[in-house]
Design a binder for these strands. Structure first.
Length: 569
RNA sequence: GCGCCCGUAGCUCAGUAGGAUAGAGCGGCUGCCUUCUAAGCAGCGGGUCGGGGGUUCGAAUCCCUCCGGGCGCGCCA
């Protein structure tokens, strides 16, 4: 719709130039924007203001010359010049009424746009260490990453979701030691449990399960063999649990990428980390100093890292960053045009070096890192304190248990990622008007109820889409949809493609929660003003189509958010 | 000290590449169910956009500076 109008303005401008009414060498690019004030129309352009200087004319005269050439177009109900020279455009009812059938024809494909143009993007998110339960921050990244993937897919990208499994390194060793120690305690051995080990009760639970399954056979085993065994057992168990919890919130990954695979020797005997470092060294990005190997991160000032970074420590050990570079080399080698990482705010200090490294690998500007700010849990207005060290925390799983997947997802998604999130547990649980999740879902349930009623089977369990198909068969005269509430609702449908485009461009799914609430509100208003099922068959038929288009649009938005669209509440 | 994020109504937050009179939800007050779900709708109040400078036709938005809050600044992972 926006493109259509922008085309009209452009043509009008070109005509005016050709006719000599406007003295411009070429037709400038036309931008349309949504006026804040609906009384200014559906779309506005400041093209006359922007071009005034170059054309040597006053903006209003320019605007008049353009506007007079648009007036009378069947899709345009009004074109006005306002203020200093804005051109305001209002769509005709006929143009709007066409949108209803467009929505119904496209179904859940409605709102698709194509800035991605079939390119491949990978979204990596959560990537929690598989050494313990996820905290609520992981829940936020999970909701964010998954919804972002859905939005990008709706915007023409081919998307892959990936979870990076940190199954190598010191954390795993400590984890293994922790579980082994709890196991030995279970076997009645008196062993020291160090402060730096994992304190959480889940460690003992895992030890207990291993004890239950295998008995005390490991009590007298050689310590390194015991630890290795416990590492694998415990890690596999935690990883399964992570998958399970994420799945409960509707988040499923295409790839679980093992950090270990980066360290394992390949066919040539060299690991991926070796190969990535060879590549960097060959390109002159590495140097030796103080017995360590460094990456010259500051050679990429555009990414703003303030110092060079060690990849191989003086003791010969690799840093985490070295593995991360190899990991990103692997990602790009898999053919993604673009890679997106979602990280917590506590990792923002790594952004510059990681982008510099990707540039050094030959993929400048192809890595986007979204930094999500922290989550604070509130209960009854009080901050819920979390401490990983003492093992006392509200985990993501406990939050899911308490508020449910839909509320959790919706609340996680509702805020800009730049904004730290206060998650009010009480509010998320509340089934009332204060809770935006229910507000939106209720609109959908209401719609389905109307459709069932129209079908004469208010209590049937038939899916709403099937019911809708039955009650909207035959012909309908959509020009009967002329009530302001009806036209406002249609205008709201027409915004979806723009919202999707913006949410994809800005990697900001929260835009969709705002839209969902707007759309639900607009529907509720329509519902209050316009009775759908009446003794006027023609009007009823037209309104049922409008209701069906509302159902489709709402369900599509909820689908992009990953929140259920209940047909009954 | 340096870097990133934030500061907008009583509270929680939007504000779309600088645009027209700064918006929404919640809370408060007042109305609306014999009719498709009242988990809904309508109305009323509520603001020096943290302070101060600057850029221009125009600034919540861009620049500088100061104040306040969060996070981070390892040859840790």
């Amino acid at each position: 719709m926006r493109d259509l109008l922008a085309g009209l303005v452009r043509d009008a401008l070109a005509d005016a130039i050709a006719a000599g009414d406007i003295a411009l060498a070429e037709v400038p690019e036309v931008f349309l924007e949504r006026p804040r004030d609906p009384s200014h129309g559906d779309w506005a352009t400041n093209i006359a203001l922007v071009s005034a200087k170059a054309a040597g004319a006053n903006p209003r005269a320019l605007a008049d010359a353009i506007a007079s050439r648009i007036a009378g177009h069947p899709d345009v109900a009004a074109v006005e010049v306002a203020g200093p020279g804005f051109i305001n455009l209002r769509l005709s009812d006929a143009a709007l009424q066409r949108v209803v059938e467009q929505v119904r024809a496209e179904g859940t494909d409605f709102g698709r746009v194509d800035p991605g143009r079939g390119r491949r993007v990978q979204v990596e998110f959560v990537s929690a260490n598989p050494v313990g339960p996820m905290h609520v921050g992981h829940g936020r990244w999970a909701a964010l990453g998954d919804s972002m993937a859905r939005v990008l897919a709706h915007a023409g990208w081919i998307v892959q979701r990936e979870f990076y499994v940190n199954d190598a390194g010191v954390q795993m060793d400590i984890f293994a030691k922790s579980v082994a120690a709890r196991y030995l305690q279970k076997c009645g051995r008196d062993v020291a449990f160090e402060d730096t080990w994992y304190q959480g009760a889940y460690i003992a639970e895992i030890a207990e399960e291993i004890f239950a399954a295998e008995g005390s056979v490991w009590a007298d085993a050689e310590p390194s063999a015991r630890e290795a065994h416990f590492r694998e057992k415990a890690y596999a168990q935690v990883l399964e649990h992570l998958k399970h919890v994420l799945h409960r919130m509707g988040v499923d990954f295409d790839v679980w990428f093992s950090e270990r695979s980066l360290h394992a020797p390949g066919p040539t005997g060299r690991s991926e980390v070796d190969i990535a470092m060879d590549m960097l060294r060959g390109a002159g990005h590495l140097y030796e100093k103080d017995g360590a190997t460094w990456f010259a991160s500051t050679a990429f000032p555009e990414y703003g890292d303030d110092k060079d970074r060690v990849l191989v420590k003086a003791d010969g050990e690799l840093t985490y960053f070295a593995a991360d570079i190899a990991y990103h080399a692997d990602k790009f080698a898999r053919g993604f045009d673009r890679v997106i990482n979602i990280w917590g705010a506590d990792h923002h200090g790594y952004v510059a070096r990681m982008k510099a490294a990707c540039a050094a690998l030959g993929y400048p500007g192809q890595l986007d890192i979204v930094i999500g700010q922290m989550v604070t849990l509130l209960r009854g207005g009080e901050v819920v304190r979390m401490s990983k060290r003492t093992g006392e925390m509200v985990t993501f799983e406990e939050l899911l248990d308490e508020v449910g997947a839909d509320a959790a997802r919706y609340f996680f998604l509702r805020r800009s990622t730049d904004q730290s999130l206060d998650f009010d547990i009480g509010l998320a649980k509340e089934q009332s008007s204060e809770n935006p999740v229910y507000y939106v879902q209720y609109a959908h349930a209401r719609i389905c109820s109307i459709l069932r009623k129209a079908a004469g089977a208010p209590d049937a369990d038939e899916p709403a889409a099937a019911v809708a198909a039955r009650v909207t068969g035959g012909e309908a005269d959509l020009s009967l949809l002329s009530d302001p509430a009806e036209l406002t609702l249609i205008r709201k449908f027409a915004e979806l493609p723009e919202v999707v485009e913006m949410a994809a461009d800005q990697l900001a799914p929260y835009k969709l929660t705002r839209y969902a609430e707007d759309l639900a509100a607009t529907f509720h208003q329509f519902y209050t003003v316009c009775h759908v099922l009446s003794d006027d068959p023609a009007l009823t038929a037209a309104r049922l189509r409008l209701v069906d288009a509302s159902r489709i649009t709402l369900a599509t938005v909820l689908g992009l958010l990953g929140v259920a669209a209940p047909e009954r509440m």
